[in-house]
Simulated assay, not measured.
Amino acid sequence: MIQNITHNEKLLSVIIRANYEKDGIEFFTPDDFSQQLAYMKRPKNYIIPPHIHNAVQREVHFTQEVLYIKSGKVRVDFYDDDRNYLQSTLLEKGDVILLAYGGHGFEMIEESEMIEVKQGPYAGEMDKVRFEPINKEKLEIK
């Protein structure tokens, strides 16, 4: 299953659930995203020819990150660019999420392990603005 989180027609996040399966390759991100996310399922003996990637000048304006939930259960809270709470969802072992735009926060519902992939180089505290989370009584989990 694929879950897209959108707000005002803007794609904030893509979630690939652990049970998603499809033959071939499918990209879930538009070509202009600075972080590309795809799923591949190939049969035994399928060959991806050896290749190198060319040096291509790219300009990145926003950090986009991908999280793979290796174990546990994580609640992700979504916010718009003005820090207004939108909704929450639960991520479980094997789920993958691309965080493209808007704000987000997390709570570990269980002890959890995650693998994070995002563009570099890391800009330290210039990379983000922290703000107060939504009151737990107002959470809307979808």
Rank of each mutant, 00 (worst) to 15 (best):
N4D: 15
N4H: 14
I5T: 06
I5V: 15
E9L: 01
E9T: 00
K10V: 11
L11F: 01
S13Y: 10
V14R: 04
I15P: 00
I15L: 13
I16G: 00
I16Y: 00
R17K: 15
R17C: 01
A18P: 04
A18E: 10
N19I: 08
N19T: 06
Y20Q: 03
Y20T: 07
E21H: 13
K22G: 06
K22T: 04
G24H: 10
I25S: 14
E26I: 15
E26M: 11
F27V: 13
F27G: 13
T29Y: 08
P30N: 11
D31S: 12
D31F: 04
D32E: 07
D32A: 11
F33L: 06
F33M: 03
F33E: 08
F33P: 00
S34K: 07
S34E: 07
Q35I: 02
Q36D: 10
Q36A: 03
L37Y: 05
L37N: 10
A38N: 14
M40V: 09
K41Q: 15
R42W: 04
R42T: 14
P43E: 13
K44N: 12
Y46F: 14
I48E: 05
I48S: 11
I48Y: 02
P49E: 12
P49K: 15
H51W: 05
I52H: 11
I52C: 02
I52W: 06
I52Y: 05
H53V: 03
H53D: 03
N54F: 02
A55K: 09
A55W: 01
V56C: 03
